[in-house]
Computed example of a mutant assay.
Amino acid sequence: MNFNKNSRSALINPIQMAQLIKNESVQVLFTHVAFPVSYVSKLDKPAFIPDSLFFDFDNVFVDKNSGLPHTLPTPEKFAAEMSKLGISNEATLIIYDDQGSFSAPRVWWMLTIMGHKNVYVLDGGIQAWIDAGFAVETELKKDVTNTHYQCRFNPNLQVTKEDIKRTLFNHERVVVDARSTARFNGIEPEPRPGVRSGHIPNSLNLHYAKLLEDGKFVDKTKIKTLFAPALQHQNKPLSFTCGSGVTACILALAAHEIGVDNWAVYDGSWSEWGADTDYPIE
């Protein structure tokens, strides 16, 4: 399948990615987060797409003063780190990870909210690239030239706990939780100490794993079916939450793929809400 840049899809396959790399100014970003996920990697040693840069949202692209695991940094901090990584505002960016399509959607959201144009996720990650027969390297690219990256922050793609609490009982927004059903229902304890079990009142549950199959996003028809309970509330904005803001972005990317634009990510997610006893739970 040839790549169509006029398509609104942010997901690309390896052949389309290779085509982009050949014909455009592309920078490739590898990301990883140390979460236990159901995806089982077939890799027995590190493997990266040639010239990949490491986008580290665990330790670098994060607000370390927030007290939360993966809080989005300020645009100023984000721009400074992008500049040090050698990223150009004009480049087409392609993100992939080594856990299928698990953490790359988080980076897609971060780049999108910071105003970068032409951002894509390699569906299926490094394994899809290898399965398509393309070459890999054993190390990431480290020799970079600093740039002067600039952000154009879009606040509409993010909600705070105050935003959600303010509309909690008037049903102005639909909150969709990407955690497992057991965690959502408070049956399974939270992995982080000091965080209560349960969920935000009146929220819906859509486990992110239902949107992925063998590390790739399911087809759009299935995505629409899975989103049907949330989309029956016509014209109401969707707010995506999870444990710490990572898998909520899988829901955000899936929504984007089926043409839903009225959404935002609750970055603090349950790590923040569940730890604050002033905020109600079910």
Score class of each variant (00 low, 15 high):
Asn154Trp: 00
Leu29Lys: 09
Gln99Ser: 13
Arg106Asn: 03
Phe35Gly: 00
Thr31Phe: 06
Gly86His: 08
Asn154Thr: 05
Ser25Leu: 04
Phe57His: 12
Phe61Leu: 10
Asn146Ile: 07
Val144Asn: 09
Phe134His: 14
Glu139Gly: 10
Val40Ile: 11
Cys151Arg: 07
Ile130Lys: 11
Phe35Ile: 00
Gln150Cys: 05
Val62Ser: 12
Tyr39Lys: 02
Cys151Met: 04
Thr112Ile: 01
Cys151Ala: 10
Ala135Gly: 09
Asp51Ser: 15
Pro69Val: 02
Ala79Lys: 10
Lys141Glu: 08
Trp108His: 08
Ser25Met: 04
Ile94Tyr: 05
Leu53Phe: 11
Asp163Cys: 11
Trp129Gly: 00
Val26Ile: 13
Gly67Asp: 05
Val62Leu: 10
Asp63Thr: 07
Asp163Pro: 14
Asp123Cys: 07
Ala47Gln: 14
Tyr96Leu: 01
Ile126Glu: 01
Gln127Asn: 14
Val62Asn: 12
Ile95Leu: 14
Pro73Glu: 05
Pro75Glu: 01
Glu162Ala: 15
Ser25His: 05
Lys165Thr: 00
Val26Lys: 06
Leu111Pro: 12
Val26Cys: 08
Val119Gly: 11
Phe35Tyr: 13
Thr71Pro: 09
Trp108Asp: 04
Asp63Gln: 08
Cys151Thr: 14
Arg152Trp: 01
His148Lys: 12
Leu72Phe: 08
Lys84Met: 08
Met114Thr: 03
Tyr149Asn: 02
His32Tyr: 15
Ala91Asn: 15
His32Gln: 08
Ser101Asn: 08
Val159Gly: 09
Val62Gly: 11
Gln150Tyr: 02
Pro105Cys: 03
Cys151Lys: 11
Val60Asp: 07
Leu93Ala: 14
Leu85Asp: 04
Val121Met: 08
Val28His: 02
Leu85Thr: 11
Ser101Gly: 03
Gln158Asn: 12
Pro46Arg: 09
Ala79Met: 06
Val144Arg: 14
Tyr39Glu: 00
Ile164Cys: 14
Pro105Ser: 07
Asp98His: 12
Glu90Phe: 03
Lys64Gln: 12
Met114Arg: 06
Ile87Met: 12
Leu93Trp: 11
Trp109Val: 10
His32Asn: 09
Asp97Tyr: 12
